[in-house]
Amino acid sequence: MGAPFEIGYVFSFLPKLLETLGVTLLIVAGSLLTGIVAGFLVALPRMYKIPVLRTLSGLYLSFFRGTPILIQLFLFYYGLPELLKPLGFDLSRAPVLFFVILAYGLHTGAYAAEMIRASVEAVDRGQVEAAYASGMTSYRAFSRIVLPQALAIAVPVFSNLVIALLKDTSLAFTLGVMEMTGKAQTLGTLTQHFFETYIALALIYLVISFTLEKVLLAAEQRLKRHEAREEKAGRSFKLRRKGSYRAVLADIDAGKGGRL
């Protein structure tokens, strides 16, 4: 299959693949933005227990988490123009990238919603009560007390979300978007050096996800600096919601032999 292995090709493919890095990152950034907005919209009815909307959010979450992203991509690409045609929108000329970003965005939105809900719920109820007791409005209590703490809790999950999204964008080529994986396939077909292209491709993905992980880890540490100081002062007290078995497990400090 193909030509014999030559390591030189890996290096010559790297810059060619990097040319399309912009498209990949555009999909990631666009979907992330869409996803966070969608995530908030979906998470709010669940957090505030708004009757009908809550059921709808549940359905949204179940669907987007219950079907593969590849199927969702095709569903959006073929289905959306048909669904919107009777409403007077003509999407047949919309760029493919639009469908791709929308599909990835709504897919990410489902995971973002769970992330938002879980991290807000992980902030101790007493914190909000204390904020109210000191005379803050509910908006202020949220923006000054809950949000900063929830953010710190959300970062590790967010980090996983971004990296998963980056890896998922490798499927956009199925709709004909020329992002890195699509480019790699073209290069492979042109030169018959498939294995080398995919090694180069894997290396690029690896470097990007590694960098993203490190950057977000640094962000997490910065957001958690207050907690770190507390711990240094000898108080091993940590904010923890009574929560479910799962939440408690997620909270276990691995380094300490799993004390509960």
């Binding site: 299959m1 998922d168 490798s170 994986t181 294995f195 995919y198 993905y205």
Partner: peptide
């Protein structure tokens, strides 16, 4: 593995293993 898409694993195996 966790830093690269699952699709690349499949393609790497598909083209690399026969070699």
């Amino acid at each position: 593995i966790r830093g690269t898409p699952m699709l690349t694993h499949l393609l790497l195996i598909y083209f690399g293993l026969p070699m």
